[in-house]
Amino acid sequence: MADLNDMKFLVVDDFSTMRRIIRNLLKELGYNNVEEAEDGNMALAKLNREPYDFIVSDWNMPGMDGLQLLQAVRADPKLAHLPMLMVTAEAKKENIIAAAQAGASSYIVKPFTAATLDEKISKILEKHNK
């Protein structure tokens, strides 16, 4: 995986405000290399075109939603290794369990602070690098 500051993030959310907020939070944490996608289909197209190091994805999106994106990423041998953090407004237990079973690296509920995002990303990278 790339050096932390060079890590390339893909932020997937149908809400432009949210994409911008997550981009700003990542920048605050020192991650400046961030691309965006509006939904799962666009995200998958980008993932297949160029290399990424980390995916941050919303759950509820039109077209391909976050869970479907997660399943597609884990099913593709070229992408399956990618850490994927699910970010969502819904704290339903069934969703959290579904995310875990589908192979999500972690799960974060909106609204969240930069500190919470930092902690989640750090834990994921720690596990990933072991």
Binding site: A100, Y107, V109, P111, F112
Partner: peptide, 9 residues
């Protein structure tokens, strides 16, 4: 704002 942390995994 601290709703974000879900520690199930």
């Amino acid at each position: 704002m601290e709703s974000g942390d879900v520690e199930l995994f």
